[in-house]
Design a protein around this nucleic acid. Structure first.
Lengths: 220, 220
DNA sequence: CGCCATCGATACGATGTCGTACCGATACGC
DNA sequence: GCGTATCGGTACGACATCGTATCGATGGCG
């Protein structure tokens, strides 16, 4: 809405581009996700995306039939398991590291989740894409972390708190903005894990070094 | 969209009403909140609300200048501290009772929070109304419960987990739908309190073999 | 070096919503 | 009983967005 570009038929930076490169597509995806974060799903317009990427509406509609399909494609481009690969050898350290990793992207992705949260209730494809892009991989990675902790005997299998760890992590991320008025960052999430998650799992850190003694400490 | 009511000048229930009664206003409020839950804030239309309550758009615009103001009024009508008044004399029981009370309305209010969650980022009045209607009273009630527990000495003041209890409660309510695919009901919330919140506060009441896993290092 | 696919720009019709204006009908106060 | 304020109904203009169509320009492939 702000880009009042044209005052005449000026070929200024209007570099005519040829066939879309994957990088160019990614620009579209980044732009639409950013617009979703800022304006919400409903308020996103193809025209706005076109303007912010200096392409034309036609180009977008040529590649993707409709706005929902475009957004779905954008979400798919974003699939990354950010919690995958965490394996310090200690459940407590894994969870701390997961908190740190989560804090790195939580602001951006919280906005996205928030903005799409209701739209997905009416669009099954969108819902699936959102789950596959932002939610399922992280939940699965968390469960894997917990599973390894159980295998190592750090927590007994079937410990009642195990079931709630993923919901807790996702939960505070979404709840903190409304409770405290700010997004959950790395610091907050690590403190939360220390103060609530680990104690609930019986991995108390109150006596600071008791923990390390348990398993010989291999963290980082 | 579905209500194809009229086939003629039917005086059936089309009772022409006179001045709006408070009950009538409440019908409007209930209707718009229900529409928000189902369709999202953006998709709510004054015409839809008018149709579902069989009033006319004029009537709505007569009372409230604009859609946001109408929604704000509807939210204000809903102010109720549902967790207020809980006081069993025991922190653990208070929290269990809070979980039960929360579970009673969480589905409805989760939908509302979800549907309005992004809209509030662009409307300060709406944001304040939402906080005052659904969020702040419950957070304050929870903090009051915790405060009494501290006063009774059940938890030491400054216990690190205290800070996170409200965010945890609100969090799992919002996260369960995406993690487990269903809303958090009474049963889930009570189990969550038992399994995660109470242990984190050091109020465990069932230490079966959890302790063995903690200190015994080779659990299972 | 020339053709053709694809780009970017823009115009367009269809649709839907906002918020206003006007209307007749009806309940309530006097 | 009558007058008036308010209701319910609908028509209206303004506006925004969707998705399509058309057109000139251009880059890449043969």
């Amino acid at each position: 809405m702000t880009s009042q570009a044209a005052d005449g038929p000026e070929p200024v930076t209007a570099t005519r581009r040829s066939k879309l490169t994957p990088q160019r597509e990614q620009e579209f995806f980044d732009a639409v996700l950013e617009q979703i974060r800022e304006c919400g799903y409903e308020a996103v317009t193809m025209e706005g995306v076109a303007a912010s990427t200096r392409c034309s509406k036609s180009t977008l509609y040529r590649q993707w039939k409709t706005k929902p399909q475009f957004v779905v494609a954008a979400l798919r481009s974003r699939r990354t398991a950010r919690l995958a690969g965490i394996d310090t050898g200690s459940l407590a350290d894994d969870l701390r590291e997961a908190a740190r990793a989560t804090g790195r992207w939580s602001t951006n992705d919280t906005k996205l989740l928030q903005a799409l949260g209701h739209a997905v209730t009416g669009d099954e494809d969108l819902a699936r894409a959102l789950r596959e892009a932002l939610i399922d991989p992280e939940i699965e990675a968390l469960r894997e972390i917990l599973r390894r902790g159980v295998e190592r005997g750090e927590v007994r299998a079937g410990h009642p708190a195990l079931e709630y760890v993923p919901a807790q992590m996702f939960g505070v991320i979404r709840a903190r903005p409304v409770v405290d008025g700010q997004y959950a960052d790395q610091d907050y999430l690590v403190r939360f894990v220390e103060a609530a998650v680990l104690p609930a799992l019986g991995l108390v850190h109150d006596p600071p070094q008791t923990q390390a003694a348990v398993h010989g400490m291999t963290g980082r």
